[in-house]
């Protein structure tokens, strides 16, 4: 089996670590080799968070080289853009369109680009394999904005790039989220799943 490389990018506090552990946990359960890199420490205070998940028969390093991601899963549109060199022509780029404006912009030292007029069109220019979704509104529809990481896990699953079945990933989500929010998270998962499934038909 070939190896699958995932790059998850976003902002500290978006549930990116949990997301990568959902995928890693499902892969372990299936008996695959898994190697991941995580971010702990200062960057979690609202900084850029990049985690990787590599799955396969044998995985040698925890980092993904430029152009070698099979999927770039972006939790924030500017961060997706920043990570674009991790993707090549064959890479699926899935991005949340809901921005998180850094404080450097609020205090007037920097500008935040327009998502609609600049970021998304530029992403569309550089790849045909772009899927956009507003994970935050889908999460709110499912019950709470906090489930947006699970919306994105659902979207990743719908791509059918992972060597894992939908049910296997859902089981892993169940292991990672609190019991009382399970239903909400399952609905969030389906919303993301359906968004990419229709593209992949």
């Amino acid at each position: 089996m070939n190896r699958v490389n995932l790059e998850l990018v976003g902002v500290g506090g978006q549930g990116i670590l949990t997301s990568s552990q959902v995928i890693g946990g499902a892969a372990l359960e299936k008996g695959l080799d898994v190697y991941m890199s995580e971010v702990h420490g200062m960057a979690q205070r609202g900084g850029v968070v990049v985690t990787t998940v590599k799955l396969g028969d044998e995985v040698y390093s925890p980092l993904v080289g430029r152009g070698e991601a099979d999927v770039v899963l972006g939790f924030e549109p500017v961060e997706t853009y920043r990570a674009i060199e991790q993707a090549s022509e064959g890479t699926w780029v899935v991005t949340n369109t809901e921005p998180i404006v850094p404080f450097t912009v609020s205090v007037g030292s920097e500008d935040y680009p327009s998502i609609e007029d600049e970021i998304i069109p530029s992403l569309e220019d550089s790849t045909e394999k772009l899927i956009t979704l507003n994970a935050q509104s889908l999460a709110e529809e499912a019950g709470a904005a906090i489930t947006q990481n699970i919306v994105l896990i659902g979207a990743l699953t719908g791509l059918k790039v992972l060597p894992l079945e939908k049910e296997e990933i859902k089981d892993s989500v169940k292991d990672k989220v609190p019991e009382k929010f399970l239903e909400m998270n399952m609905e969030a998962f389906e919303k993301g799943y359906n968004r990419t499934k229709e593209v992949r038909k």
């Binding site: 152009g67 853009y81 920043r82």
Partner: peptide
């Protein structure tokens, strides 16, 4: 790897 038009992306230091 993909290349995209270069923007001055805002930095995102921890805060």
């Amino acid at each position: 790897h993909l290349k995209a038009e270069e923007y001055d992306l805002p930095s995102r230091p921890p805060s």
